[in-house]
Design a protein around this nucleic acid. Structure first.
Lengths: 187, 187
DNA sequence: GCTCTCATGTAAATGGTTACATGATTCT
DNA sequence: AGAATCATGTAACCATTTACATGAGAGC
């Protein structure tokens, strides 16, 4: 069986807390989005190879669901992965590809591109700041405990927040430069 | 013909300056890495559909190469794309997936992960800082001229540098927290 | 009756990587 | 002779997305 990064992520999610495929998709949404058509086959393979167990759970007011939990073999596999070196990050960002070529258009196009990006990043910043605040209020002890998964979540939120704030700052710098240069040209 | 983001990037590279497939791969390497097996078919398709022209160039001391340049149709296509809205960015980062699950291991694993990341980011920071410095020294006028492609390159470098510096800062924060918490535990 | 959320999947297509194949030229 | 860089490509595979299919239950 082939273990790619997404498969390890699924194991990691289920190790925190048993979940259904549908719930895994929701958990991934804000962090590393994946479609259900990718998750369900991964779960099926993990189960077929004994890395996760599955139990049917009846719900009232909702359809039944299949809740998966990690086996000891699954946990061992995840632990072994954490001792390896991660690949360098890959960023797919259309926005950057557009900035790369935006010099062929009027300056207004760059301005629009940056303003839209800033708006998007401000929304993301609010989203993650809120998430972190809720977690801090709900689990004040866990988030500073090395052996709690919420500690890891806190680290990831704080990184996201810092990165997003940094990008907003960059947008402001570009817009400032832009305004300055245009005033100079007009004068 | 299907135009994906990579195809637009190839057009953007060739519009700055005509290049061979081999050169395009090198140009992309530090920004959005792609393999030659992806670039050559894109060039073939672009040529077959009249978006780029190709001329054989003899070189001495090196094998001959095929240099591509963008046609007016190709430029129009790129311009139209710049008026659309970019998709939200996608980040594939094994490191983050590892941090997500590292709570199941001893704290040393997190420490190692962060230290290695910091080292990697410091290398990247040096690389981009050097690149920007060279460009600033070589083309002091261009980098502030809206209608020069080097202006766009400067924006992308400055963003990369700020982002990378920010990530190093985050690594330092995590390591400081970590040291503090361990001292508290030992005391 | 219609839409929304919950829930699980399959099939086809696209985007990208890995592996392979070939050949010129330069440097050691 | 062997490795390194330059140069162009093909074939097979993997990862992910898009589109499709189905169905229960809730709320309007």
């Amino acid at each position: 069986m082939i273990f790619n990064t997404t498969t390890y992520l699924v194991l990691g999610i289920l190790l925190r807390e048993p979940k259904s495929g549908y719930d895994i998709v929701k958990e991934l949404a804000s962090f590393r989005p994946a479609k259900s058509s990718q998750i369900y086959p991964i779960l099926a393979k993990l189960e077929a190879n004994g890395f996760v167990d599955c139990t049917q759970v009846q719900q009232d007011g909702k359809p039944n669901k299949k809740v998966y939990s990690v086996t000891s073999t699954g946990k061992a596999k995840l632990e072994a992965w954490l001792d390896t070196e991660p690949e360098p990050p890959v960023i797919r960002d259309d926005f950057l590809s557009m900035v790369y070529s935006v010099w062929i258009k009027e300056p207004e196009t760059l301005e629009r591109l940056i303003k839209d990006r800033k708006t998007y990043m401000e929304q993301r910043l609010d989203f993650f700041t809120e998430k972190l605040a809720v977690m801090e209020a709900s689990f004040p002890a866990d988030i500073h405990n090395f052996y709690s998964w919420r500690h890891c979540t806190r680290l990831l939120y704080s990184r996201r927040i810092a990165m997003t704030a940094q990008e907003i700052e960059w947008c402001n710098d570009v817009l400032k430069d832009h305004a300055l240069a245009r005033r100079t040209t007009e004068a």
